[in-house]
Design a protein around this nucleic acid. Sequence first.
DNA 1: CGGTATCCGTTCTGATACTG
DNA 2: CAGTATCAGAACGGATACCG
Lengths: 130, 130
Amino acid sequence: MSQSHTDVSAEVIEAEACPVAEVLDHVAGKWSIGIIVAAAHGPVRFTELERAINGISRRMLTLTLRKLERDGLLQRTVYPTVPPKVEYELTDMARELHSTLASLTDWAERHRHAIAAARAAYDATAGQPV
Amino acid sequence: MSQSHTDVSAEVIEAEACPVAEVLDHVAGKWSIGIIVAAAHGPVRFTELERAINGISRRMLTLTLRKLERDGLLQRTVYPTVPPKVEYELTDMARELHSTLASLTDWAERHRHAIAAARAAYDATAGQPV
DNA sequence: CGGTATCCGTTCTGATACTG
DNA sequence: CAGTATCAGAACGGATACCG
């Protein structure tokens, strides 16, 4: 990093954007948020998540779960019972993230329509339909 | 929405996660955040962004710029001067987002080490090195 | 200056099938 | 119940070259 701070902007990018981008890269997977939200109110089991998220494949659920676990956002607990039982619970860190995500949710909700409108306008103006 | 609230989780997902996921899908591109941050302190030109973000290709810059513009996050102004001049500026909506992103940045900074540690621990425990 | 077009490798996702 | 394995297709991202 820092190969010659010829201009200030570059520093801003490196100082602010990188950490977030890195985190978001892990949080912004197509399903991560859904899982964090679903696990926010307590430990959840694999199948519960599968049903709750509706649309996610077993594969993606597993992959996303692993990624979140690896990043220390999810704690995985295995109960060696006869029918296997595994519970996923948010770590403190993730719970904080969940709170933080709230303002983003809020922003998203508040501007959802504006975004949709902007998109429609853009498509109508720039990408003249066939 | 609401296809039969058999269980609460599903509703939470549909009510909260979807809009955010949708938004984050647009904001979480590898470069979107960088551009938003870089444009936060005023209108920027194409080339400025290209230099500021360092590592981005012309193609990705254009694509990301278009995406953000389409979503109404960026306003593109073309000055029909002899050497073409185009400026990109955050819309009010995007400026709000930028503020919101701050808490996420904060979270990321505060837990960066914890995440790295968790990852290292996970790799050491679960994915026994060759 | 500010793009667009094309090629190409990598990553992400989903569908399906099998297992401890 | 809670995964893992494999495969194929779509989307993403980078490099390069050309254009108004």
